[in-house]
């Protein structure tokens, strides 16, 4: 089963590799991982998406908590939360497909960031499922390049995830 975990970790060199190294050393898989500093610059926040049965997820949570660099973590999957991913898409367009791509961009509330005679660069933010649907809907235009931010997650609880 897919699990989303939010992690606050010390914003220091090597902290990311401690998390990534833990996953490879213990043969856990990482579906996506994104990390950036928070309002408190001494802390980074990571959203990590992984897969495993309950036993594996329990071990992953315990092992992450054991890392000295991890300040706090929260498993988002069991609680009400939102998840978003940003995708940049470069699509090759021509006179036959240009209007179709523009229409799909409107329908999916994506936006075209850059236009050249032969290509669009499009930004799309949403749930992972929606961004995949959007990519599929662009055909017959040819998608030549994609970059995904990985999932970002936040619980809907009024209580914030904080380092203290």
């Amino acid at each position: 089963m897919r699990h989303v975990i939010s992690i606050l970790l010390e914003n220091e060199s090597g902290a990311l590799s401690r998390v990534a190294g833990l996953f490879s050393a213990r043969a856990y898989n990482i579906e996506s991982l994104s990390v950036a500093p928070t309002v408190d610059p001494s802390v980074s926040r990571m959203t990590l998406v992984t897969r495993g049965d309950d036993h594996i997820i329990e071990q992953i949570i315990k092992q992450l908590n054991k890392l000295v660099s991890v300040v706090k973590l929260q498993e988002l999957t069991p609680v009400e939360h939102i998840e978003r991913e940003m995708v940049l898409i470069k699509a090759e367009v021509n006179d036959k497909t240009r209007d179709h791509v523009r229409m799909m961009t409107d329908i999916f509330k994506a936006s075209i960031l850059s236009v050249s005679p032969t290509h669009f660069v499009i930004e799309m933010t949403g749930e992972r499922r929606k961004s995949q649907e959007f990519i599929d809907a662009l055909a017959p235009a040819v998608v030549v390049e994609i970059v995904r931010s990985g999932s970002q997650g936040m619980s809907l609880s009024d209580k914030p995830l904080r380092s203290n």
């Binding site: 060199s13 090597g14 590799s17 401690r18 190294g21 050393a25 000295v68 660099s69």
Partner: peptide, 14 residues
């Protein structure tokens, strides 16, 4: 050294 010893220490520092 920090990279090599990361998986076999409780923690390490540079």
């Amino acid at each position: 050294t920090v990279g090599i010893t990361r998986p076999c220490t409780k923690h390490n520092f540079l």
